[in-house]
Amino acid sequence: MTTLRRPFLVLGLLFIGVLVFSIFLGRYPAPYWMPLSTLRSDLLAQRLVVNLRLPRILAACLLGMSLAAGGTVLQMIFRNPLVEPGFLGVSPGAAFGAAFSILFLDGGPAVVEVTAALFAGLGLAGSYVLARAIRYGGWILRLVLAGIIVSALFSAGLGVLKYMADPLTELPEIVFWTLGALWGVTWADVAYMLPLVVPGLVVVYLMRWRLNVLALPEETAFSMGTAPGRERSLLLAAAVAAVAAVVSVAGAVGWVGLIVPHVSRRLVGADAQKALPASMLIGGTFALLCDDVARTIVAGEVPLGILTALFGATGFLLLMIRRTPQVG
């Protein structure tokens, strides 16, 4: 099933390579590249790397890993390869929260983040409560339906807020946020993400083989001595907590969580024992590369979500039209 020999060596080296490469990439002192000699001698360059580039690079890694891991978990648990981690009301909730904060709470980026995270949690909780109330279909179908309903409500709310926003000042900020960006990420932002991202990813990583069993039909998973409801809820909560944390800082960055799990399964096979860590490595690398382009290519800042969509969709297309005997 494996199409790549020694996939983890290749993916690991690639990830570390991109990580190191990203440190030297930027627009100081000149566009695109900072020579090692500058980093040794220039005090400003050192400060810039430590205070701006490093937290941003770390944030990009966490973002990519959380979205990719979240995507793998949700696709497997919902047994649906078209699900992405913003599902279940998380991303639309966060976007609504951010817009709400931009419009009504004058508090700067930190307040936007906290409000976004609160509403992401609210979106998830809303989906959960709604799923319990729906009297139709099995638990998975009810969660999917509830997620769609909650997402639609938040999207409608976001539309209203956009309509009300000042088109010169507030609207661009909302649009920029919904496209996603890691612009101006500080160590404080990273520290704020870690308490949710680290436990979330650790739980998902440790339970990665179990994820295979939980991807089976409910009664089969049950017959194999698992408690599917409880174990799936735990994995979902862990994955979504990590995603909510990164999304509240970076905005609604799309496509990573949808595409990276597919790429990973193509490379290492469906077994989550391998597919999940591969997914995290690919997600981290991909988000880093996209963010490198976002902050380097022009003097301003290209919204990250545009690049992940552009490169993600292109890469996905190439992957899908390649002749391989595999499915899914």
Partner: peptide
């Protein structure tokens, strides 16, 4: 899980597991 096993009427198999990977799930 050690006492009883089930072969359901239909067991749609999600994703691209190999037969050996799939049988290994029985060790859960």
């Amino acid at each position: 899980g050690r006492l009883m096993a089930l072969v359901p009427q239909s067991e749609p198999i999600p994703f691209n597991f190999s037969a050996l990977e799939y049988v290994l799930l029985g060790r859960t």
